[in-house]
């Protein structure tokens, strides 16, 4: 079984690099990394490939594009579209607010203890997602939540009377920001640290205003990092299931909830359409992450 599943690309570099190193040490090294590749193949690559291949097959196993074509029906398109909107809104807002907070704690001149507190808290909050996060926002902005009640008590203002609903587009976006902003802070703070003091001094000596410094020096340098991280946040929100599921049940038709229902009970009445649904998600997160990695490589050129 080991031989059959052994990934083919592994053997090619072996021949190239064999001569300079002692042969026995080499085989030990290959043996040492074999479990990793075997694991990745079994629990990451093959399961994904199975769905990707299944998306292009009909129930008899023949090649077909019908599943892909069937994705373009109103229910499914709407699910993708709402997912994309929520992910984009929470990514862009998260990046914006995250940038200001990261700026404040790194080069904003706040006391050092604030920086370490914010960074630790960001580590916690970026991992505080899923179902408990949904509970927290229900207790805050739900119909009987503290903030909802306080607003009625203090200002006689009922946010639910004015059309707000936690179980909606903006409610979910606001909730997602709780892990999106900290993630932005965590990734962007080191980039802001990379801005060299000399750049600012040089631009000031040349008579640049603060605005000109940011517009023509700092932002162009930071831009790939900011855009890249925004894409990462997008993918992060796009794949999220638990928060939305616990918050809205199945009332908000986003694509992860649809896929969840499909896996549970074949709501689309077509197994292979489910594979196509998964393929669409992989494509979207794959493209955004690929662009992120490319942009990060670009930003590292300047921020060493």
């Amino acid at each position: 079984m080991v031989d059959a599943a052994h990934p083919a690309p592994l053997q090619a570099p072996l021949r190239d690099a064999a001569p300079p190193v002692v042969k026995t040490a080499f085989s030990w090294a290959w043996l040492g990394v074999t479990p990793f590749f075997l694991f990745a193949l079994l629990f990451l690559i093959l399961p994904t490939l199975y769905l990707v291949v299944g998306a292009f097959m009909d129930t008899e196993g023949n090649f077909t594009l019908d599943n892909i074509v069937n994705l373009f029906q109103p229910t499914i398109l709407r699910a993708y579209w709402i997912s994309i909107q929520i992910s984009a809104a929470s990514a862009i807002l998260g990046a914006l607010f995250g940038f200001f907070i990261a700026f404040a704690v790194t080069i904003g001149g706040l006391p050092p203890w604030i920086r370490s507190t914010v960074m630790t808290f960001s580590g916690v909050a970026s991992n505080f997602a899923g179902i408990p996060l949904a509970f927290a926002f229900l207790a805050t902005l739900g119909r009987t939540g503290l903030v909802t009640a306080l607003l009625i008590y203090l200002f006689d203002f009922n946010i639910y009377g004015s059309g707000f609903n936690l179980l909606s587009f903006w409610g979910l976006t606001l909730t997602y920001l709780y892990f999106q902003i900290p993630l932005m802070v965590l990734i962007l703070a080191p980039a802001l640290d990379g801005l060299k003091k000399e750049w600012r001094e040089a631009s000031e000596i040349l008579g640049a205003s603060s605005w000109q410094y940011w517009r023509y020096v700092a932002l162009p340098v930071l831009w790939p990092a900011i855009c890249g991280t925004t894409l990462l946040l997008f993918a992060n929100a796009f794949g999220a299931v638990a928060t939305a599921y616990a918050l809205t049940g199945s009332s908000l038709n986003i694509v992860t909830i649809l896929l969840f229902a499909q896996i549970r009970g074949d709501v689309l009445h077509d197994q292979h359409l489910g594979y196509a649904l998964a393929l669409g998600m992989i494509l979207i997160t794959g493209i955004t992450n690929g662009t992120y990695i490319w942009l990060r490589a670009r930003s590292e050129r300047w921020l060493r």
Partner: peptide, 12 residues
């Protein structure tokens, strides 16, 4: 991080 968790478990 690229492949959503729900897709991986669907594959499983």
């Amino acid at each position: 991080l690229v492949i959503p968790a729900i897709v991986i478990v669907f594959g499983y």
